[in-house]
Design a binder for these strands. Structure first.
Length: 913
DNA sequence: CTCTCCCGCCACCCG
DNA sequence: CGGGTGGCGGGAGAG
């Protein structure tokens, strides 16, 4: 009954492990302790769980989402195997349960179930069952448990990899040395180490990690990914993989008929000997280089990637890949070998998929469907600045056109085609058809409780465009991974996080349906009467994480991934005749009906290509004089590289027309070391800041008259982490018509991830002199802000208090109580994304990040680096995920990050200031 | 049935 | 040698 009695084989368990063993309160501990060393199976975790305190719910759940935080104890190279410390809090009992169950081996579950171990009486003392909180449940628990039993899917390598990746920042600071302890990770993720090897090996092949020492890996992140891919591409070309693939595909050789070596006979070059391509950086001196069979998996992984990179179609079928690999490996071309190879390829593919580099597809041939994968990662490595470029940049012009056009349509009320989404009517009134179309491709997404693509616009476009639907799916379930590639083929790299748990932060980052409570707006300001918006308090849908679409609520879908949003038509009424675009390119665009100028704007921004795409021309008809508003939230903002064109796309709230100014702003901020030097930041936590003055000063550099103004509104609970930004008016000098004269507006707004649960200030456009004059920072700090909307005659006041808006329940809360303001979804918030390293380490939610990363815990002025780091991560956070609402913990860097949107708003204010 | 790929035995191989 | 690695393929879940 001690460790030794713990069966290693499922078959033995029933006999070896008795009910008594399991129910004995003390036994479990013994198991855990002694078994810890021997248990190499999946159930090791469960054993360890037994060691957990009686309040496991707080300690044990493998809440990956909460592991983003850098663990205080990170540096110890030798990982501490304190499960209880590493585990984060569950975000929901259900999720927790799932996690626990998934951690537990099926065998044990079955065994225990059979023995009725979950019955309250018998197990009331059982730590394990307690941890599951099953002691209060009746027999139904068994069924429940059965249902909860982790499916094969839940235990998949891909999912595991996602969890793994979620622990580390995609783009760690160069100075950061993140160490990965295999032990720690394995325990943390509740899997045996063997599985971690699989992941790490593939990651290593791409140089995302490198082995530092025994049981220790260094995390590099994706910084060098472009470079690596470029090299692999080159190598692949040298290997003439494309020809090989073409040959094999053309041959349509049956697996069994395939004559290995035939290719060579045909004159194809022989593959190089397996050798791991080493592009490793000096960061982590790889200890013992290659050993044991050349690290087969790594080499396979690299070659697999090469195949994609050299492929014109970017699609590689497994059989072809396997054949090539087999041949290169000089393996015996037997079926068994093939099978094995395919297995490995699946393993690799799972990891690559988690990295949002490839996507499962199927290739239909005469012989039927063949499993294949499509490369969805960057394909253009000409620039090493791949990272942090707005993902939108990754979309092909055509798709952009489609996509953005679609977005435009959305905002222009043509979303109707997607029955599952709200429909915005031309008149500016919002109609809704919530999921009226069961057959909607997006409907399926609901199960996961994701906002993503519910709106359908982009996803729909992609699905239509891409038959294999891989893009759409990628969009749906990929992690937000800023892709620098401007290549058209690159979809939105978003990493999906465990929809199974009902938490998918990534989705939020992709496309979201935003609901705004515009009542105030519609009723009190000039917009009233034109916008038929019923104010409906959106109940928090955190539980289901489904967008709470309420009738009569305006919404806007925007790709939040890159956090850049289109706000087409936003200003249609606000400032006819005046556009933010100095060059007027957008406005003068000859009506190409559905096209949004945003793409072009962005493109210009990111690529600095003045040439406007015809497709991006703005339809004057629909949008009249509407100017384009492009808000770009800086994802991982690297303060050090803002000057780099390649990173432009990552600018947070970069005014289309004033990148330069923005840079100055940034420079200013950085110079002052005040990441929080913006009202947004300071207000993030509803905490008065003394730095408020900073922004205004900084804004001076950006007081370009052409700057767009936005209203930034803390979203209703239903938005779950999204802030709504809508144009507050045109530039002060634009001389746009007063708000009162605004035509029906199509609910121009932007929804951006709300990284902060704290109070959100509403910024008014500079059109309001009064507002402008006031220090933005000050306003922000005042908590709920009472603003006058610009617009003559409309004394409309937009009172925006985070408390009131964010959470209906806490509507009465003032900014003074940040904690209360925390979203009910705090624990439910999608915290799976890596974006969480931003969160306060002390946050109870986020427990021990295993990574050794510098974490600024103090409110002390953050360094540019730290700023960058946190900012990047913040994007994908929902208010709840933001972590500790406690004021004292608010980090400036975080604030700053979260405030990107706001900063944009501040700009105008500075002038007056 | 095929497709996937989890799982973990056990051989390597390093310190 | 012990333990970290990871090749490998049986076999079972998923579709």
């Amino acid at each position: 009954m001690e460790a030794g009695s713990l069966p290693r084989k499922a078959g033995m368990e029933v006999n070896c492990l008795t009910l008594k063993d399991l129910i004995n309160p003390r036994q479990p501990r013994d198991f855990a302790i002694e078994d810890g060393e021997h248990a190499q199976k999946e159930n090791i975790f469960i054993d360890r769980l037994r060691m957990a305190p009686k309040t496991p719910i707080k300690n044990e759940p493998i809440d990956l989402s909460k592991q983003k935080i850098f663990s205080p104890e990170r540096n110890p190279i030798t990982p501490v195997k304190h499960v209880d410390r590493q585990q984060a809090e569950p975000w929901t009992p259900t999720a927790n349960l799932k996690m626990l169950i998934s951690a537990a081996s099926p065998d044990i579950r079955d065994r225990e179930k059979k023995k009725g171990l979950f019955r309250p009486i018998e197990n009331k003392d059982d730590a394990f069952t307690d941890s599951l909180q099953l002691d209060v449940v009746g027999d139904s628990t068994v069924d429940e448990f059965e249902k909860q039993r982790p499916s094969r899917k839940q235990k998949s390598l891909g999912l595991l990899c996602q969890k793994f990746l979620a622990r580390y920042p995609s783009y760690p600071l160069s100075t950061e040395k993140t160490t990965i302890s295999l032990d720690e990770v394995a325990v943390s993720l509740g899997v045996e180490r063997r599985r971690i090897y699989d992941i790490v090996n593939v990651l290593e092949s791409l140089h995302l990690v490198s082995r530092v020492a025994k049981n220790q890996y260094g995390w590099h992140g994706r910084h060098s990914l472009p470079k690596t891919l470029r090299n692999l591409q080159r190598l692949g070309e040298e290997q003439k993989y494309e020809e090989q693939m073409a040959f094999l595909q053309q041959k349509e050789l049956d697996l069994m008929d395939y004559k290995f070596g035939e290719r060579k006979k045909d004159g194809y070059p022989e593959a190089q000997d397996p050798q791991l391509v080493d592009f490793s950086e000096p960061d982590y001196p790889s200890s013992s280089a290659n050993s044991r069979k050349d690290k087969s998996l790594r080499i396979m992984s690299q070659k697999f990637v090469m195949l994609f990179l050299v492929s014109k179609t970017k699609i590689v079928t497994l059989d072809v890949a396997a054949k090539i690999l087999i041949e290169e490996g000089h393996d015996t071309p037997d079926h068994s070998k093939f099978k094995t190879k395919v297995r490995r390829l699946y393993d690799i593919a799972n990891v690559l998929t988690s990295l949002a580099l490839i996507k499962k597809v199927h290739v239909t041939e005469e012989r039927g469907r063949k499993p294949a994968f499509k490369w969805i990662g960057p394909v253009d490595f000409s620039s090493s600045d791949e990272q942090r470029v707005d993902v939108s940049a990754s979309v092909s012009p055509e798709l952009k056109r489609e996509t953005y056009g679609q977005i435009q349509v959305c905002t222009k009320q043509k979303l109707a085609r997607h029955g599952s989404f709200n429909t915005v009517q031309a008149s500016g009134r919002i109609q809704r058809k919530v999921n009226s179309e069961p057959s909607s491709p997006y409907r399926e997404e609901q199960g996961s409780g994701c906002y993503s693509l519910k709106i359908g616009s982009l996803a729909a476009v992609y699905r239509q465009k891409i038959e294999d639907s891989s893009w759409g799916e990628a969009l749906d379930s990929k992690r937000v991974e800023p892709s620098s590639s401007l290549d058209p083929v690159v979809p939105f790299p978003v990493l999906s996080v465990d929809p199974e748990y009902g938490v998918n932060p990534l989705d939020h980052s992709v496309f979201s349906v935003a609901h705004m409570d515009l009542q105030t707006f519609s009723r009190q300001n000039s917009l009233s009467g034109q916008v038929d918006v019923s104010v409906t308090s959106v109940a928090s849908a955190v539980e289901s994480l489904k967008p709470a679409l309420l009738a009569g609520q305006p919404f806007l879908c925007v790709p939040a991934t890159s956090l850049f949003m289109l706000c087409g038509g936003l200003q249609e009424g606000l400032s006819p005749g005046s556009g933010p675009e100095k060059d007027g390119r957008i406005s003068e665009a000859p009506g190409s009906g559905e096209l949004s100028s945003a793409p072009s704007a962005q493109k210009r921004l990111c690529e600095k290509q003045p040439e406007a795409e015809p497709a991006t021309k703005r339809p004057s008809r629909d949008y009249e004089e509407s100017s384009l508003s492009l808000i770009m939230l800086k994802t991982p903002s690297d303060s050090t590289d803002f000057a780099s064109p390649g990173t432009l796309g990552s600018w947070a709230f970069t005014p289309l027309e004033d990148i330069h100014g923005n840079r100055q702003l940034r420079a200013s901020e950085e110079a002052s070391g005040k990441a929080t030097a913006n009202c947004f930041a300071s207000s993030e936590w509803g905490h008065p800041s003394t730095d408020v003055e900073k922004p205004s000063k900084e804004n001076e550099s950006t007081k370009d008259s052409s700057l767009l103004q936005y209203f930034y509104v803390q979203p209703p609970a239903g938005l779950n982490g999204f802030n709504v930004v809508f144009p507050g008016g045109q530039n002060p000098h634009s001389g746009g018509p007063p708000a009162g004269q605004l035509p029906p507006f199509g609910v121009p707004c932007m929804v951006v991830p709300a990284p902060t649960p704290g109070p959100f200030p509403v910024l008014c456009s500079p059109a309001m002199p009064g507002l402008v004059s006031s220090a933005p920072g000050t306003l922000a700090n005042t908590g709920p802000v009472n603003f006058s909307l610009p617009g003559p005659g409309s004394a409309a006041h937009l009172v925006i208090g985070p408390a009131g808006i964010v959470n209906p329940k806490s509507s009465t809360l003032s900014s003074a109580d940040p904690q209360l303001q925390g979203q009910p979804s705090l624990n439910l918030s999608p915290v799976m994304s890596r974006s969480h390293n931003v969160i306060q380490p002390e946050s109870p939610i986020y427990v021990g990040h295993p990574v050794s990363v510098k974490l600024q815990k103090s409110p002390v002025p953050v360094t540019p680096k730290s700023i960058r780091h946190t900012q990047r991560e913040t994007f994908f956070k929902t208010p709840g995920s933001l972590g500790d609402p406690v004021p004292k913990r608010r980090e400036k860097s975080q604030s700053r990050n979260a405030s990107s949107a706001q900063r944009r708003l501040e700009i105008p204010g500075s002038g007056a200031d």
